[in-house]
């Protein structure tokens, strides 16, 4: 965390820093235009936010109000039944913990591994470099559905099926490649002169990585982390295939419980309450890191 807190001003190119741009745009009596843009932004927020709003109010509706001939834009008899049931369900909390363990581990591991890999291709020329880049790309293209059963067999042979560790390893397949790609562009954006200078000052290569490059790509680490987080957090098919015990289940598996089955109808308010509570940690995470994300989601990638 202390690393992440390193001030961006440490970057040697002060002009690059975004917040400095904005006042300039305000110059020249553009307030009226800004007002119009704000209105457009609010319109977009309403359009994009409407399905979210629908999810939220459905969670508060009673079953009879979920689908009605005249849509109910506000729950007539707001009910906390769905939320109460989910929050009091020990299985929900268990599954939340499982999801947290799996997602956090997969993201942290892929960031560490991805950072090293990205360092290598951004900073070194070596035989097999292109093959490596290509392999990273190819892995992203494997359809996950085709991969599921072979992956399950592989983990079975390695005695990792039906374990949290196994799912974490399987998730690296889709969290790591993106990390390598994206971090590579971040690292490439840190001028090599900095490495050189540090090494002239007597830093070892490792110290250079650690003290110079890592702080500068911290926003990139967060941004790729959030991306991987969302993918892993919402993944269903692999988790459902690899985890056999109920007490190891993750949140997307939990959501299924509310859907209709041959003998029971779907509990939509319950499902939407559970879905809201499932999305919330991600949103909270976003809000915490938001400033860093927008500063850094792709700070490196825009190198011309």
């Amino acid at each position: 965390m202390t690393r992440l807190a390193a001030p961006p001003e440490a970057m040697p190119r002060p002009k690059k820093h975004p917040s400095a741009d904005r006042p300039a745009r305000r110059r020249g009596g553009r307030r009226y235009a800004t007002w119009a843009w704000n209105a457009l932004a609010m319109l977009l927020a309403v359009v994009f936010g409407f399905p979210i709003y629908w999810m939220l109010i459905t969670a508060f509706k009673t079953s009879g109000d979920v689908t009605t001939i005249t849509p109910k834009f506000w729950p007539r008899h707001p009910s906390l039944r769905g939320f109460a049931e989910v929050l009091h369900d020990p299985i929900f909390l268990d599954d939340m913990r499982n999801s947290l363990t799996i997602t956090l581990s997969a993201v942290v591991i892929s960031i560490v591994i991805g950072f090293f890999g990205a360092m290598a291709i951004a900073r070194f020329r070596f035989l097999g470099r292109k093959v490596f880049i290509f392999a990273v790309l190819i892995v992203q293209m494997i359809p996950l559905l085709a991969l599921t059963i072979p992956m399950s067999l592989l983990l079975d042979h390695a005695h990792l099926k039906n374990t949290t560790t196994g799912v974490i390893i399987a998730y690296l397949v889709f969290t790591m490649p993106y990390t390598v790609w994206t971090l590579r562009t971040f690292i490439a954006n840190v001028p090599k002169e900095l490495d050189e200078a540090a090494m002239v000052d007597g830093c070892s290569r490792w110290q250079t990585f650690y003290k110079i490059i890592l702080p500068l790509v911290a926003p990139g680490l967060i941004a790729t982390g959030v991306y991987g987080w969302i993918l892993a957090w919402n993944e269903f098919v692999l988790a459902n295939t690899l985890l056999l015990d109920n007490n190891k289940a993750t949140l997307p598996m939990y959501l299924l419980y509310f859907q209709s089955s041959p003998v029971h109808g779907a509990d939509w308010p319950g499902l939407m309450a559970a879905a809201t509570l499932t999305s919330l940690p991600v949103v909270v995470l976003f809000v915490i890191f938001q400033s860093r994300i927008s500063a850094g989601l792709t700070a490196g990638a825009v190198k011309g």
């Binding site: 936010g49 976003f286 809000v287």
Partner: peptide, 19 residues
């Protein structure tokens, strides 16, 4: 306005596609 729109976008991003 930016904060509001970004917050909405973040929520959209976080919702699982099944839901």
């Amino acid at each position: 306005a930016r904060v509001i729109l970004v917050a909405v976008l973040l929520f959209v991003w976080a919702v699982p596609s099944t839901v």
